[in-house]
């Protein structure tokens, strides 16, 4: 009896979870290929929000080499990894999302970065009506920023394809 109850509860929460996932067409893995480089974005649900990380890899002979990733330790002195740097929400039209992204792709511990402050940008994605597995990806600084904001390193205006 206890086992049956456990199975029912598990199925219930699985359905809820799948339903939630299904409601947001952006959850999953998105890619943009440029030559032998692939920019990859992972969007997932966390605490009723859409969170995410990104990475850039280089592909040579089918072998991927990491160029940068947002899911890395906070710095060389710490083991703890970055919290998700993408914080976005599905808009009421259900085909676009917007929110904030922190570009941490730099080697921000280097002296070259010392003049800059890490600074959040906004992120907007919109599913293309012509192909629902593709979406625009637009990143830019927003509102007041200091005049020492670093140039944004990640792609800022591309079309991505959902692969998972």
């Amino acid at each position: 009896m206890r086992t049956i109850k456990y199975i029912i509860i598990t199925i219930f929460f699985t359905i809820i979870s799948l339903n939630s996932y299904a409601q947001n067409p952006f959850h999953g893995t998105w890619e943009w290929q440029n030559g032998n480089q692939i920019f990859r974005v992972f969007l997932f649900e966390q605490n009723s929000t859409t969170k995410g990380h990104f990475e850039m890899v280089e592909v040579n002979n089918g072998i991927e080499t990491l160029v940068y990733t947002s899911d890395k330790p906070y710095n060389s002195a710490m083991a703890q990894h970055w919290h998700p740097v993408i914080n976005v929400g599905l808009n009421s039209d259900h085909v676009s999302l917007s929110g904030r992204i922190l570009d941490n792709s730099y080697d921000y511990e280097s002296q070259d970065f010392a003049q800059y402050d890490l600074c959040e940008s906004w992120l907007k994605m919109r599913i293309l009506t012509t192909n629902p597995t593709t979406a625009t990806w637009k990143v830019n600084y927003y509102d007041i920023i200091p005049n020492n904001a670093p140039p944004i390193n990640i792609p800022m205006d591309i079309i991505m394809t959902k692969v998972e």
Binding site: W122, N140, Y141, Y142, I144, P146, N147
Partner: peptide, 9 residues
């Protein structure tokens, strides 16, 4: 079309 304004640090 850039949604920000830079102010002096």
């Amino acid at each position: 079309l850039e949604p920000y304004v830079e102010l002096q640090l």
